[in-house]
Amino acid sequence: MAPVAREAELTDPAILMAPKPAAPHANSALRDAVVVMRRELRSYFLSPIAYVFGALFLAAQLYFTVAYAGVIDHGRPANLSVFFGLLPTVFLLFLPGLSMRLWAEERKLGTIELLMTFPVRPGSLIFGKFFAALGYLALLLLLTIGLPWTLDVAGDLDWKPVVGGYLASLLLAGSYLSVGMFFSSLTRDQIVAMLTSLVALALFVAPVTPRGVVIMEQAGLPTLAVQFLRGISPFEYFQSISRGVLDIGDLVFYAAFCGFFLHLNAMILRGRRERG
């Protein structure tokens, strides 16, 4: 637990008097997270918006890959590099829309107060919501499996980089979602949450694109700052995994990136819980 929160717990009578949450046991925290995740996932599939969102996401991604970039064509090599190359941009447009509701909706509907009274640690809540959103996205990505299957039938696809590509996509989606969740926890307005996370994610993607670099430098950002932003951009680490090279360093980066933003998220929630 973070030192600030621990100190507040020790000194704030309201917290001391409150019923103790479940023992900070790893198993129970995990169980709680799984419960939250299942609840969230169920809510996705009971909402028509999730289907519309999912169908739009799939249609956009597959249209750009298949029709626009012409990945399926006689004589063309069977690989999914274009599919994975487009995914970060499509994620950028769609994922803020998915993550905006995660906390902002709870706050708007007033259910967050109820949620906070549950004997569940904020970490379990956050992980539950995070993995539910990731699970939903994994399902959407699973629905694109027809594309590699087609390429395999028509041209002997090398599956191992494809598996790597899907793994990279999930990691990238996870990093985008963690940023989106953090901004969703800051406001009760979903549109504000979406726009702020969109801008933040665009800032992460910009230093990896030449045009973005030009714009940033024209805006007076020093080269060192641009390079720093590039170094912390999830997009930068997406490239090698998506082409089939699994670098432990890249995996550690994604874990650290997601962990950092989820930790910020937890700090916000704890602060809110402390303030009642």
């Binding site: 090398d158 191992k160 980089p161 598996v163 790597g164 082409r243 089939g244 090279v245 699994l246 670098d247 432990i248 360093g249 550690v252």
Partner: peptide, 8 residues
């Protein structure tokens, strides 16, 4: 860290 090339 190690690096694993997944391509056949």
């Amino acid at each position: 860290g190690p690096r694993i090339d997944l391509t056949t």
